[in-house]
Structures are given as C-alpha cells and as structure tokens.
Amino acid sequence: MMLAAISIPQLIVFVVAVAIVGVGGVGLLAAKHTVHSALFLVMTLFGVAVLFIEEGAEFLAAVQVIVYAGAIVVLFLFVIMLLGVDRVEVPAFVADRNRIVLAGVGVLAVLVELFYVASGAWSSGAVSQSGSLSAGQNVGVLARSVFTTYVYPFELTGALLVIAVVGAVVLSKRLIGRREVDR
C-alpha cells in the first residue's frame, strides 16, 4: 500500500505526536481534578504543535506553544487556583445517562461524516486565492500575507484583544462595586 512510500522517521514522529495528542485528549476528559485536565491540555497542545511542524507550519507551532501552552493554560491554572484547587466534582460527568448516550451518538455521526470527507481526494481542486505557501520561508510567506492581503483583519484582531481586556476588567470591576452597594 502507500505505507511503503512514507519515510520512516516522519512516520515515527507522526505516530508519537498522535499518541501524545490522544493520551492528552482522553486524559483531559477523564481526569477528576481540574488541574490534571489543564496539564493534559498542555500535553495535547504540544502534540498538535509537533504535527504543525511536520506539516511545515513552523511559525504556527511556535505560536501554539507560546500563546496556548504558555499564556492560555496559565490563565486556566490561575482561575483554577482562584476557585480552589482541591475541589473535586463527585460525578465528573452529567448524571443523565441519556444525555451521555445522545452526545456519543451525535459525535459519532459527525465523525463518520468527517471521515467520509477526509478519505476523499487530496484536494477539491480549488485554486489558491491567497498566494502559494511554498513561495519562500514559512515565516516570511505568512508575514507577507498577514501584512498585505489580510492587514485589515489583522488590525481588527488588535481591536478585539483590547475589547477583551477591557471586558475582563469591567466584568471583575462591576462585581466589586455591586458587592459594596449590597453592604
């Protein structure tokens, strides 16, 4: 089959990365403590970063580790710390058996459809709209695209980040004010 044509080192990296992603994902769902879930999330994010590198997206792999595994998971851990680390949900999953079964059936239906799409041809034959990926170094190509074709969306994400920061501050600030009024 096709297996013989794939270079062995790449296959090994792929299998190991998928194993890391799988263990991390299942561990996240099965963990009793929220902290363990967060650490399994880091594991999954690292596995996905390895897959990014294997697909030639070096910049995104670096950003994945710095932003996701660095910033976002630390944010999660801070909130877990705020809410109490030792708190264990006695039944981790919802009590309603039907809901779990229905969720499983729904997810399976989506998966079957996705597998059907994924097992198709390499591409749909669509023509590149935003430039070739192999035109140069990964970072350079990405930067040229972000700062020329997608410069307005890029500026908008800056506005979005400011809105998020202001929103988070307002969310915590207004509550403090209300508590003082309650007294």
């Binding site: 997206a57 910049f59 995104l60 591409s123 669509a126 590149s128 709209q129 935003s130 430039g131 070739s132 990926l133 192999s134 035109a135 990964n138 190509v141 990405l142 695209s145 972000v146 074709t149 997608y150």
Partner: peptide
C-alpha cells in the same frame, strides 16, 4: 492546496 490562507 499549497495555499497560505489556511495558515493565516
């Protein structure tokens, strides 16, 4: 698809 749009 050799398209930079996906990574952006």
């Amino acid at each position: 698809l050799n398209d930079v749009g996906g990574q952006v």
